[in-house]
Amino acid sequence: MTSNRKDDHVQLAAQQQRQPAAYNQFDDVSFVHHALAGIERSEVSLVTHVAGIEWPLPLYINAMTGGSVNTGAINRDLAIAARQTGVPIATGSMSAYLKDESTADTFSVMRNENPDGFVMANINATTSPVQARRVIDLLRADALQIHLNAIQETVMPEGDRSFGSWSKNIEEIVHGVDIPVIVKEVGFGLSSDTVSALQKMGVRVMDVGGRGGTNFARVENHRRSQADYDFLDTWGQSTPACLLDVQGLGVTVLASGGVRHPLDVVKALALGAAAVGVSGRFLATVLDGGAPALITQITVWLDQITALMTALGARDIETLTRCDVMIQGDLRAFCVDRGVDTRRLATRSTSGVVSPTVDE
């Protein structure tokens, strides 16, 4: 059943990616154009820092899949692309491995094909510290992702229905492993309240995982015989909304969810993300053209990210957080209700307002 579910997830996620591009709240973010801001391309650095660790690039392949023969082949292609481009990479949820050790190679292929890369293992919030150490050992993982997916579980026909132990489990894992722990949402967003609660548990890095990309409420609803949860299709906060909501909390924030192209990456970095993760867009590329196609795509994206930073006059990721940005539309309405001062963002290049990105 787990293998079938993993294959279903891939198929349904890919179908969403192949639909016509739709509006998401990254479209409500724009840069104020300063025509003389540009610098020399050779001055631009893409280096960033996550959990005190230097990443050469602010882009990573985020959690997708694993647990079946087909998804193991996908993970192999993803790992090859990560190795060839130098981007960090995360496995999909390793719950399948904890239930059935015969699926181990569908996850360990990521380390085997990418022996020197930065690899993150992924588990759910019901995992014990002992189990967490098992997946870390299998992957020789450099960091551990814990995903939060209460809405997905609610819609999933065979999903969990009890979430009261999650906070306790997360805190125990944070103190029970010796590598950085990253808590992430799967597409419904992390609020500032959630981020503050996670800080108290000892979590120092969060991936906001906002609405706008692969919609797991919709994925799971397609798997229901009556498809009776379609009213949750728009649940959650977008990635830009989350980034704006959590500014000033002094935590390293990663961004994923709804990232469609390099401009979205640069917008997320400007809103305070230390790095940006992509899943759905890269999944569709791998399914269509394998590792070579994804290598080409990531290479082009990195080149275009550098080009955009050059035009903006941003020598590094921190400088990007001083670029003037305008917030409009539905995203501006969210900011008004949540008490986010968008006017300061539009003039921060001269006012000295900086969006914190790292915990150095």
Rank of each mutant, 00 (worst) to 15 (best):
A73G: 05
T239R: 03
S68T: 06
P240M: 04
P56W: 10
L57T: 12
A81M: 05
A275H: 03
N4H: 13
N169K: 14
Q15E: 13
G66R: 02
I136E: 01
D245S: 08
S45Y: 03
R161G: 11
Q152G: 09
R338F: 13
V358C: 13
R224N: 15
V259K: 00
T154A: 10
W55S: 05
S349C: 08
W55A: 05
I305S: 01
I295A: 05
V251N: 10
G258P: 01
D337H: 11
F26A: 00
P292I: 07
G67K: 00
T306W: 10
E171A: 15
G257M: 03
I151P: 00
S162L: 13
D264E: 09
V47Q: 15
Y97S: 03
P129V: 13
V353F: 15
Q16F: 08
N169W: 13
Q247V: 11
G280L: 04
V195Q: 03
R211S: 10
L294W: 01
T106I: 13
A197T: 06
V354Q: 14
A311E: 10
D160R: 14
S279C: 15
G313M: 07
P262W: 00
L244F: 04
T306S: 15
G202Y: 07
T357D: 09
V205W: 00
I146G: 00
Q237D: 13
D230T: 15
M94F: 08
V69C: 09
L244M: 12
E101F: 07
K168A: 15
S256G: 07
D288A: 15
L46K: 02
V195D: 04
V44D: 01
Q145S: 10
L148R: 01
G236E: 07
L139Q: 01
D7R: 08
I80E: 02
